[in-house]
Amino acid sequence: NMECRVCGDKASGFHYGVHACEGCKGFFRRTIRMKLEYEKCERSCKIQKKNRNKCQYCRFQKCLALGMSHNAIRF
């Protein structure tokens, strides 16, 4: 039983190089595919399941810091 490295929810698998839940997987995919840019935040918000949708900037930064990558495809 793995935990999502981004928000701590139950991970659904290994997505983009990191154990992640469906919510964070979809969030990362949409951000990359649609080339979304979020308003910069300096607060280093703590991303948890209950508040993961509050600060998209910090959520995406955490995805990147954990090594999530669009190129991380498993063979």
Rank of each mutant, 00 (worst) to 15 (best):
N1Y: 07
N1R: 06
N1C: 05
M2P: 03
M2I: 11
M2C: 10
M2T: 08
E3W: 08
E3C: 06
E3R: 06
E3S: 11
C4P: 00
C4K: 02
C4H: 04
C4D: 00
R5S: 13
R5Q: 14
R5V: 14
R5F: 06
V6C: 01
V6E: 04
V6G: 01
V6H: 00
C7A: 03
C7S: 04
G8E: 06
G8S: 05
D9A: 10
K10D: 12
K10N: 10
K10P: 07
A11G: 07
A11F: 07
S12C: 09
S12F: 09
S12G: 06
S12H: 07
S12A: 09
G13I: 06
G13V: 05
G13A: 07
F14N: 10
F14A: 11
F14H: 10
F14W: 09
F14Q: 10
H15D: 11
H15S: 09
H15I: 08
Y16I: 06
Y16F: 10
Y16D: 15
Y16H: 09
Y16Q: 11
G17R: 02
V18P: 04
V18H: 02
V18R: 03
V18K: 01
H19R: 11
A20V: 10
A20Q: 01
C21R: 01
C21E: 01
C21W: 01
C21S: 01
E22W: 05
E22R: 06
E22K: 06
E22Y: 05
E22C: 07
E22N: 07
G23K: 11
G23A: 13
G23M: 12
C24W: 02
C24F: 05
C24Y: 02
C24G: 00
K25F: 09
K25I: 13
K25E: 15
K25D: 11
K25G: 15
G26P: 00
G26H: 15
G26E: 15
G26I: 13
G26Q: 12
G26D: 14
F27G: 01
F28T: 00
F28C: 01
F28L: 01
F28V: 04
F28H: 00
F28S: 03
F28I: 00
F28E: 03
R29E: 15
R29I: 15
R29H: 14
R29D: 15
R29C: 12
R30G: 06
R30C: 06
T31H: 00
T31C: 02
T31Q: 01
T31S: 11
T31V: 05
T31L: 00
T31M: 04
I32G: 03
R33F: 15
R33A: 15
R33Q: 13
R33G: 11
M34T: 05
M34E: 14
K35F: 06
K35G: 13
K35W: 04
K35V: 06
K35H: 08
L36E: 09
L36K: 08
L36Q: 07
E37R: 10
E37S: 10
E37Y: 06
Y38Q: 00
Y38M: 03
Y38W: 05
Y38L: 04
Y38E: 01
E39G: 07
E39K: 13
E39L: 07
K40F: 13
K40R: 10
K40T: 08
C41K: 00
C41L: 00
C41D: 04
C41I: 00
C41V: 03
E42M: 11
E42D: 08
E42N: 06
R43D: 09
R43E: 12
S44P: 09
S44H: 14
S44E: 15
S44K: 14
S44A: 11
C45S: 02
C45W: 01
C45Q: 01
K46W: 08
K46G: 08
K46E: 14
K46T: 13
K46N: 13
K46V: 13
K46M: 13
I47D: 09
I47A: 05
K49G: 15
K49E: 15
K49S: 08
K49L: 13
K50Q: 14
K50C: 08
K50E: 14
K50M: 13
K50G: 13
K50V: 09
N51H: 10
N51C: 04
N51L: 09
N51E: 13
N51K: 07
N51G: 09
N51V: 08
R52A: 14
R52F: 08
N53T: 09
N53H: 09
N53Q: 09
N53A: 10
K54G: 10
K54C: 11
K54F: 13
C55N: 00
C55H: 04
C55Y: 03
Q56P: 12
Q56D: 15
Q56Y: 09
Q56W: 06
Y57T: 02
Y57R: 03
Y57G: 02
Y57F: 08
C58R: 02
C58A: 02
C58K: 01
C58L: 02
C58N: 00
R59Y: 14
R59Q: 08
R59E: 00
F60E: 00
F60K: 02
F60I: 05
Q61F: 00
Q61L: 05
Q61M: 10
K62W: 03
K62I: 07
K62F: 05
K62Y: 05
C63P: 02
C63W: 01
C63G: 03
C63R: 04
C63I: 03
C63A: 03
L64K: 08
L64P: 01
L64F: 01
A65T: 10
A65E: 12
A65Y: 06
A65W: 07
A65L: 10
L66C: 09
L66P: 03
L66I: 14
L66S: 13
G67A: 05
G67K: 05
G67W: 03
M68S: 02
M68N: 01
M68C: 00
M68A: 04
M68Q: 03
M68V: 03
M68P: 03
S69G: 12
S69I: 08
S69R: 08
H70C: 08
H70Q: 14
H70D: 15
H70F: 13
H70S: 13
N71C: 07
N71H: 08
N71S: 13
N71Q: 13
A72G: 13
A72I: 06
A72D: 15
I73H: 12
I73C: 13
I73L: 14
I73G: 15
I73K: 11
R74S: 14
R74L: 12
R74E: 15
R74I: 12
R74F: 13
F75M: 08
F75I: 12
